[in-house]
Design a protein around this nucleic acid. Structure first.
Lengths: 232, 232
DNA sequence: GTAAAACTAGACACCATTGTCTAAATCGTC
DNA sequence: GACGATTTAGACAATGGTGTCTAGTTTTAC
């Protein structure tokens, strides 16, 4: 019995490993082609070639083109949301050196969620196929971007109550934080380019500097030396 | 001779008026369908139906689908750029009441360039077909968004030199101004919704308030009354 | 090694679309 | 009303894509 269970498990695992590799290969290739060509422009043959798989295998795993598309969307959304919340959990706790901590946070957010493959793919997908599949992206919107903004607002509220920031509307501040973080990257992304680490870092620094100029408490550290030198 | 020229002109004008109407009707319908379905997904028959025109007429005016697509892109780009510069010329001159003036400016910019039909169409088009036609959008990028940012930066420089703003990097400030203006609208737009005037107005107000908190000179108008009342 | 399962290559019917062609109809001008 | 230019509807071949089927090959488990 024990052996049976063990072998059975081994069988399915092993069987799945081969299948799973094919499935993942197909999903990845399909994502690439759907993203590049759009749903209508993508052909199954092209996907099969890019996945190094026969066309029939695709039809075996995913009944038809539409099913494959859904699977691709689901896959990338799940991955993107997971990454998003993972990054969100690294929001700074301490309030000493808030500028560097926030800069690091938005750098991570941009690098791993906004500018990376999945993020770009998702945005493009939502734009190109959103009208055609409204229900498909509504769930993502609810549990993705919407929750992110809420979570960010809550974190800003904590910092604000703690006295590190002076924010009246936390939701607005959260959206502005995200917007500022993308300000220097939007144009690059719109034209399909992938920003370098240096560009993302610079964008993050600019964003946080302005954000803190608007919402940070009037920095005492910078004016104290001036006063001292004057009085001296 | 005079009469000849006059009649000839009248003839061509009149002939052109009918043709021109058809052309515009086709361009508009094609834009709609290309935007909705993407290049591959759009069918000539669908465009013809939406333009209330026979398929052959489309082929008479634009030799093939690709030509039609180019014409559509060119048309919308020209119109969008014109509107953009028109709005840009309404950037505030005076520095009394800068907050209201900037709010009005970004309201106009968002309403007529970013959130309107052409703006949304162009962004979607660049995203979906940008990879397929790199040269097509490069010219637009050069003489569109890039020039806008430069112009905005120059205008901020003027305000900054005049003492109304305290900006170090004008290019960064210009990009941040645009980004803040879109902060509250981005999510709506991404999902294909058209923001209401109230939403655009509110977004503009939020954006300018934060922008001025970051870059405005420490507002004297708000503290003067306090000082006066104290001295009184 | 064997048997079952998965994969491959290619042929196939079916359908949608592109772009051409033709004959009839419509429009504007004289 | 007549004429020329434009438009229309529909037929048409050619193409390319989807999804099915089959026969043969490879992989995997035992």
């Amino acid at each position: 019995m024990k052996q049976n269970a063990a072998t059975a498990k081994k069988v399915t695992e092993s069987a799945n490993r081969g299948q799973c590799a094919k499935r993942m290969s197909i999903l990845e290739a399909a994502g690439e082609v759907f993203c590049r060509e759009g749903f209508s422009g993508a052909s199954i043959d092209e996907i099969a070639a890019e996945a190094c798989v026969s066309r029939q295998t695709i039809y075996n795993h995913y009944r038809e083109k539409e099913t494959l598309f859904m699977a691709v969307v689901d896959d990338v959304m799940t991955r993107a949301n997971g990454m998003m919340f993972s990054i969100l959990s690294t929001f700074p706790d301490r309030t000493d050196n808030l500028e560097d901590d926030l800069t690091g946070f938005i750098f991570r957010l941009n690098k791993n969620c906004v500018c990376n493959h999945d993020g770009r793919f998702l945005r493009k997908l939502v734009q190109t196929e959103g009208e055609r599949h409204p229900h498909l992206f509504e769930s993502w919107r609810q549990q993705g971007p919407l929750k992110i903004t809420n979570a960010l607002a809550a974190l800003f509220a904590r910092l604000s109550i703690g006295g590190a920031l002076q924010i009246e509307d936390f939701d607005v501040a959260a959206r502005q934080f995200m917007a500022l973080g993308n300000a220097d990257l939007q144009m690059l992304m719109l034209f399909g380019e992938t920003p370098t680490d240096e560009q993302i870092e610079s964008a993050a620094r600019n964003a946080v500097r302005t954000f803190l100029r608007a919402y940070g408490r009037p920095q005492p550290s910078r004016e104290v030396p001036t006063l001292v030198s004057v009085t001296a």
